[in-house]
C-alpha cells in the first residue's frame, strides 16, 4: 500500500496492449477522471468478446466512473487488467458490487477476488451501511453463461438469492433464452457472516497476488487494511 498517487499517472496506453503473464506489479485504485475514457474502451472491448456481459454505453459508464464508483487493476504502465464497481441505487435501497471483468491473460492471480472485495470493503468502511435508517441490500448480479465470476462472488461472501429475468430488448446484444429474456442470478451478501470473512481477508492481505506479483492498493492516507478490518468487525 502506498499513500501517494505517484503511480497513478495520466499516461494512456493503447488498451489492446498485451500483458505478459510475468509477475508484474498490479495497482488497485478508484478510476480517476483522466482514466475514464481509457477504462471505457477496455470495458467495451471486453464486453464485446462475451455475450453474457452487460456492456454499458459510454455515457452510462462515464457517469459511473466520473462519480468515482469504478475500481481498476492496472499495471505500472496503466494497462488495464480488470474493472469492477460499487454503486448505490437511486432510492438507496440497494448497493451493487458488480461489473467484474478481468483480462483473460491476467486470470489466476486473484485479481477478481481483490476487485470484488475492495469496493465492498471500501463501501462498508466509508458508509457504514448497517447503521443506515434503512440498511441497503448488498447485491451482485451475474448473467447466465457468465461463469467466471460466480466462484469469486461466492468466495466474497454472497449467497444466491434468486433467479432474475430481464426482457432481451432491455439488454441488446446479450444472449437471450427462448422466452425472449436474458436470464441471470442475484446474490446477496450474507450479513453478518460475510463481514468477518472480509476482516479475515483484509488482515491477511500481504501486498502479493497468488502468482507472487506485487500488488498495491491505493487508500486514503491514514487508512490501512487492518484498520478497515477492525471497523468491519465492529459492525458485525
Amino acid at each position: 500500500m502506498i499513500p501517494g498517487e505517484s503511480w497513478v499517472t495520466s499516461a494512456v496506453r493503447p488498451i489492446g496492449a498485451t500483458v505478459g503473464t510475468a509477475a508484474l506489479p498490479v495497482n488497485f485504485c478508484i478510476v480517476n477522471s483522466d482514466q475514464v475514457g481509457h477504462a471505457h474502451t477496455w470495458h467495451t472491448d471486453f464486453a464485446a468478446a462475451n455475450d453474457a456481459i452487460y456492456p454499458r454505453t459510454q455515457e452510462a459508464f462515464s457517469a459511473l466512473a466520473l462519480d468515482r464508483n469504478v475500481w481498476c487493476a492496472v499495471t505500472d504502465e496503466e494497462v488495464v487488467l480488470g474493472l469492477s464497481y460499487a454503486c448505490v441505487s437511486d432510492d438507496e435501497s440497494e448497493v451493487e458490487i458488480g461489473g467484474l471483468m478481468v483480462s483473460p491473460e491476467a486470470r489466476g492471480k486473484g485479481i477478481g477476488d481483490v476487485l470484488m472485495r475492495l469496493p465492498l470493503c471500501h463501501f462498508l468502511v466509508n458508509e457504514n451501511p448497517l447503521a443506515w435508517r434503512r440498511p441497503p441490500r448488498i447485491v451482485a448480479h451475474v448473467l447466465k453463461g457468465n461463469d467466471a465470476p460466480r466462484r469469486i462472488i461466492a468466495r466474497t461472501g454472497f449467497a444466491h438469492a434468486k433467479a432474475v429475468r430481464i426482457p432481451g430488448a432491455a439488454l441488446p446484444g446479450l444472449r437471450t433464452e427462448p422466452d425472449g429474456h436474458v436470464h441471470g442470478d442475484e446474490f446477496h451478501l450474507r450479513i453478518p457472516q460475510a463481514l468477518e470473512e472480509q476482516a479475515v481477508w483484509l488482515d491477511g492481505w500481504n501486498d502479493t497476488l497468488l502468482d507472487g506479483s506485487a500488488a498495491r492498493i491505493r487508500l486514503l492516507e491514514g487508512h490501512t487494511l487492518p484498520g478497515w478490518a477492525a471497523a468491519i468487525r465492529a459492525m458485525a
Binding site: 438507496e92 466509508n126 458508509e127 487508512h223
Partner: peptide, 8 residues
C-alpha cells in the same frame, strides 16, 4: 444518510 465508520 451515511457516515464513515467511527474507526475510519
Amino acid at each position: 444518510v451515511s457516515s464513515p465508520h467511527p474507526l475510519a
